[in-house]
Write a protein that binds this DNA or RNA. Structure first.
Lengths: 79, 79
DNA sequence: ATAATTTATTCCCTTACGGGAATAATAAAA
DNA sequence: TTTTATTATTCCCGTAAGGGAATAAATTAT
């Protein structure tokens, strides 16, 4: 599996923690507060905090909403 | 974002449903039963069924366990 | 068709998610 | 430093997630 990535970012998520960090990174890069992101993604503010801090039991639907709100794509690929 | 994919499969997950289908597809391709996959992934059998049928509220940690058990990678990339 | 396997659905149960709101802690700005 | 803004933590509470097990339904094999 080869991925060519001229501009954007890409990272493999081995756990919720790394995904949370990716979300935090992108949110800050976009100059958004957790409150603003929460409003866009239609989730609670606390959820954003939980997610960014790697809470392992976050629900997938909400995670996807947040990723979408940040213009991020969730991809599954063979190793 | 350019992805070169000689052999394996890759798909963008817009929702839990599509992810569930990807899991089901890979599990069958690997010749595993839900019971076997559940044991490997350390989750309940019912969870596998829930996930494969697109239950939106599945927890991310468990999803990651299942993906890992199937040799699938979870990737986040800029759109 | 019938039996055997696999998957889906339902139940009971413990646990805790996620929202909202308040407070504490941190970070940033003046 | 002292505000001000942002984030983390805690609380209450309704709701449901997920495990196990039993049953029903569906799929596959014989």
């Amino acid at each position: 599996m080869v991925v060519v990535n001229p501009n954007g970012n890409i990272s493999v998520m081995h756990d919720v923690e790394s995904l949370g960090l990716a979300v935090k990174k992108k949110r800050k890069a976009d100059g958004l507060t957790q409150q603003e992101l929460a409003a866009i993604a239609m989730v609670g503010v606390r959820f954003i905090s939980d997610l960014e801090n790697g809470k392992p039991t976050v629900q997938l639907r909400s995670v996807i909403r947040v990723l979408k709100a940040l213009g991020l794509e969730l991809v599954v690929m063979d190793k």
